[in-house]
Deep mutational scan, measured.
Amino acid sequence: MQIFVKTLTGKTITLEVEPSDTIENVKAKIQDKEGIPPDQQRLIFAGKQLEDGRTLSDYNIQKESTLHLVLR
């Protein structure tokens, strides 16, 4: 499924993921596309910060959901 990741600069990254993918996994995909190390990434969905060990389905993230990427 496709999800979108919006950065603070207003750029939107499109990722191909599975509901069973972990947040860690998603961060690795963002690193592949954008070169941002996962340890600098914070992903936010519905106002919650997403934890590395959880999966997209844990957070009920469905196709075409938009996550927000904050760098630390």
Rank of each mutant, 00 (worst) to 15 (best):
T66W: 07
L43W: 01
Q49S: 12
E18A: 09
D39Y: 08
K63A: 11
K48C: 02
G35T: 08
R42V: 14
Q40A: 11
I23S: 04
Q31E: 08
V70S: 04
A46I: 12
S20V: 08
T55G: 04
L50R: 00
I61H: 00
P19Y: 12
S65N: 07
K29L: 07
V5M: 03
L56E: 00
S20D: 09
L71D: 13
P38S: 15
S20I: 09
T22N: 05
L43C: 01
R42L: 15
T55H: 14
L69H: 01
Q41L: 05
T12K: 05
I13E: 02
E34M: 07
L67G: 01
Q40M: 07
E34W: 08
L69K: 00
G47P: 01
T12Y: 05
Q49M: 08
A28M: 15
D39Q: 07
A28I: 08
I13K: 01
E24T: 06
K27D: 00
E34L: 06
E51R: 04
L15I: 12
T22Q: 11
L15V: 04
K29C: 03
I13C: 02
P38G: 15
S20R: 12
L67P: 01
I30V: 08
A28V: 12
K6T: 15
S65E: 08
Q41V: 08
K29H: 08
K48A: 14
D32A: 13
D39V: 04
F4Y: 12
Q40P: 03
V17H: 04
L15F: 07
T7K: 08
R42I: 12
I36V: 11
E51A: 05
L69C: 02
L71R: 04
V5N: 00
N60K: 04
R54N: 12
K27T: 03
D32F: 13
K27R: 10
L15P: 00
H68V: 04
G10A: 13
T66G: 03
R72L: 12
P38Q: 10
T14I: 13
Q40C: 02
K11M: 14
G47Y: 15
L56Y: 01
E24N: 07
E16I: 13
Q41I: 04
K27G: 01
D39K: 09
D39W: 04
F4K: 09
G35C: 03
S20G: 09
K29Y: 15
L43G: 00
T22G: 04
N25V: 13
D21Q: 05
K27L: 05
V5Q: 00
Q31C: 02
T55F: 06
R54Q: 05
I3A: 01
V26D: 00
K29Q: 11
T7A: 04
L15N: 00
G35E: 05
F45N: 05
G10H: 14
Q49T: 10
K11Y: 13
M1D: 05
L50C: 02
E51N: 05
I23L: 11
A46P: 01
T12G: 06
D52C: 03
Y59D: 02
K6A: 13
K11C: 03
T7I: 06
V70M: 05
G10K: 04
N25T: 09
R72C: 02
N60S: 06
P37S: 15
P37H: 07
Y59T: 02
I3D: 00
I23H: 02
R72M: 13
Q31A: 08
L67D: 01
K33S: 13
K48Q: 15
K33D: 06
V26Y: 00
L43Q: 00
K48D: 11
E51K: 05
T14N: 06
G53R: 12
D52F: 15
L56M: 07
D39F: 15
E16N: 14
I13Y: 13
Q62M: 14
D52Q: 09
L15M: 10
E24R: 10
D32T: 07
P38W: 14
L71F: 07
M1T: 05
Q62L: 12
D58F: 12
L50D: 00
D52P: 06
I44L: 14
F45G: 03
D58S: 12
K48Y: 15
I44T: 11
S20A: 14
S57M: 05
E51Y: 10
L56R: 00
T14H: 09
R54H: 15
Y59A: 04
R72W: 08
Q40R: 06
R72P: 10
K6N: 13
K29G: 07
F4S: 05
D21V: 07
I44F: 13
R42H: 15
L15T: 01
L69V: 08
P38F: 11
T22Y: 07
D58N: 09
H68Q: 05
E18W: 07
N25A: 12
P37M: 15
D52W: 04
I13N: 02
F45Q: 04
I13L: 11
V26T: 13
I13P: 00
T14L: 12
D32K: 07
K33I: 06
T55R: 10
K48F: 14
D32P: 03
G10I: 04
L50E: 00
L50M: 07
Q2V: 10
V5W: 01
L69S: 02
K6M: 11
Q2G: 13
D32G: 12
S57T: 06
